[in-house]
Amino acid sequence: MPMSQQRVAVFCPSCSPASETAHEVLSEGGQATVRCSECSHVHKTTIEEESTVNRRVIVSQDDESTEAMVDIPPEEELSTGDEFLVETDEAFLTARITSIELANGGRTDSAQATDVKTLWTRGVGNVAVNLTLHPKDGGHEETRSVKIQMPGDEEFVVGQSHEYGGEEFTVERILVRDDATDYDREGYDFGGDSALAKDLKRVYARDENSRSRAWSAW
């Protein structure tokens, strides 16, 4: 659908007399002529000037989902990768758009707020990072996978040592998520390459604690 076309959320007498749906404005005036995006019914209506539209948001985090509503300027363009603050019953969450569900049931990577039914998002304020750690000195220890919690804006740098959640490790390779922006490839393994925790799919690292655990076993 062309994004330049003016669209509004109004009641449709044919398919949605009880709740607003997205309509294309065919002509303006005191009684504007509009066409329903759901059923294509053309009718006249009074368009109220709205400062915001109320839209549903689903925030996923750590295998759990929270539903909330957000107010958005009707002409605002929304895109996957955009981040915004969501107020839920439990807390304020920083959310990143991963998919946009349209009023007509389709999915897209970008849309005007008036066309949106639901914003599917991922919480990025505090995140769980997947680590794959291999032993520092070899031996009989095996590679292990752990998950650590941290602020989403913490930076991981290839070649640098980090300490989080009781783990000490040196980063060797990082994989970024599909919904991360400002990255030109999925994997980074050169010294100095970096990514934020909220953008990470997985971190491969050398376990700096492996020797101490081997000694403690004795």
Rank of each mutant, 00 (worst) to 15 (best):
A32Q: 00
T66H: 05
S51T: 14
R55E: 01
V129Q: 01
H140D: 06
D207R: 08
E75R: 03
T108N: 00
G105T: 11
G139A: 00
E168I: 08
T66D: 08
F92A: 11
K198V: 02
N209S: 05
S65M: 10
V146A: 14
E49Y: 12
N54P: 07
S19N: 14
R56H: 10
M3I: 14
T80P: 02
R7P: 00
L119C: 00
Q6K: 15
G166C: 14
P2C: 09
H134D: 05
V8Q: 03
K198C: 09
E48N: 11
H43I: 08
P13S: 03
Q6R: 12
D182A: 07
E49N: 14
V129C: 01
V157Y: 04
M69W: 10
Q31M: 15
G159S: 11
A103S: 14
V8F: 09
I58M: 09
L85D: 11
A217D: 11
E76H: 00
T52I: 10
A217N: 11
V158T: 03
P151D: 13
A68S: 05
Y164A: 13
T132G: 10
S161Q: 15
N54V: 09
V203L: 00
Y164G: 13
Y164T: 09
F156V: 03
S51D: 15
G191P: 14
V70A: 08
V158C: 04
R177K: 10
Q61A: 08
D153K: 01
R55Y: 03
L131G: 01
